[in-house]
Amino acid sequence: MIEPVALEHFFFFFFAAALVIFAALAYALSYSFSRLYRNKTLLYVAGLAYGVLILAVFWLSWLANLHGFWYALVGMMLFGYGVAPILIWRLSVATHD
């Protein structure tokens, strides 16, 4: 059911895992600030951060040997971290008035 992380990948695994969450944060931050200040450049930064997120998730999935069923997790992470900030922003706007 699982194939554990190889010894020589330990360090990179932790690094990649932290990178996933930090990239998700950077993406959420730049996305919401781009909306707040109606700033196009920040939207590109958000796109860039999401790109880093994608790479980090794939790197992580390679390091952690995520095959088979675990592909679903890769998909869910890309989808969840990508869509949540947009939905929450829309929601905040919708409840504003």
Partner: peptide, 25 residues
């Protein structure tokens, strides 16, 4: 456990968006 807990940080990230909205608007 692996699947759902890996998604647990999503609400924490979502909170960031919400607080920026709150403090900015």
């Amino acid at each position: 456990g692996g699947f759902f807990s890996a998604l647990e940080p999503i609400p924490l990230v979502a909170m960031v968006v919400h607080s920026i909205y709150d403090s900015g608007v």
